[in-house]
C-alpha cells in the first residue's frame, strides 16, 4: 500500500504535524502526545499492519538550528504488506523524553538504549535504560553535535 503518510494525516489531523514522501520514503512527523496512539494505529490497522520495527535512531539538529533540537526516527516495515513507514517525533533539549516502545517490540529495548547512550534522549517506561555501546562511567552523549569529535575520556573498567 502506498500513501500511508497521507492516510495518517487524514486520520489524526493536527497530531501529524507534517508529512513528506522524499525519495519514495513515506514519512510522518508525529506529535509526542499522540505518538503512542499513532504507533498503535500503525501496528494494528489491518491495512497498514507494520509488525516490524526495523530501526530507531535520532538526529541532532544543533548545527542546523532545528527547533526543537532532536528528531527521533522510527522505521517500520510490514512483513505481510511489504511496505515501509518512517515516523518521527521531535523533542526539545530541555525535555528530551519519548514514550518507550519496549513493551510492544522486543527490539525497542536495545535500540532505545542505544539512542539514550548516543543522544541522551530518555524513553519513558523503558524497563532498563542503561548505556549499551559506551561504558557506564562515560560522561556525555557522543553523537550530539556539541560533543567534540576528538574528545577523549579515560576508559574505566567495570566495577568489581
Amino acid at each position: 500500500m502506498t500513501g500511508i503518510h497521507i492516510k495518517l494525516q487524514e486520520k489524526f489531523g493536527a497530531a501529524v504535524r507534517e508529512i513528506h514522501n522524499q525519495h519514495g520514503d513515506e514519512t510522518a512527523v508525529a506529535d509526542r502526545s499522540a505518538f503512542l496512539t499513532i504507533v498503535q494505529f500503525v501496528r494494528n490497522n489491518h491495512n497498514i499492519d507494520c509488525d516490524m520495527l526495523t530501526d530507531i535512531t535520532a538526529v541532532d539538529g544543533l548545527s542546523l538550528k532545528w527547533k526543537p533540537r532532536f528528531e527521533v526516527i522510527y522505521h517500520f516495515y510490514s512483513t505481510k504488506k511489504n511496505h515501509r513507514l518512517r515516523l518521527k517525533v521531535k523533542v526539545d533539549e530541555q525535555d528530551p523524553v519519548v514514550p518507550s516502545l519496549a513493551a510492544e517490540w522486543g527490539v525497542a529495548n536495545w535500540l532505545e538504549r542505544e539512542v539514550w547512550d548516543m543522544f541522551g534522549i530518555r524513553f519513558e517506561g523503558h524497563p532498563d535504560l542503561r548505556r549499551i555501546l559506551m561504558y557506564e562511567q562515560f560522561s556525555g552523549h557522543p553523537l550530539r553535535k556539541d560533543y567534540p569529535y576528538s574528545k577523549r575520556q579515560p576508559l574505566i573498567g567495570p566495577k568489581n
Partner: peptide, 19 residues
C-alpha cells in the same frame, strides 16, 4: 534531504539512513 535504503546483508537487512 534524507533517505533510508535497505539491502540484504549476509545477516539480514542492512540499512543505511543518510541525512
Amino acid at each position: 534531504g534524507e533517505a533510508y535504503l535497505p539491502v540484504e546483508g549476509a545477516n539480514g537487512e542492512l540499512g543505511f539512513y543518510v541525512v
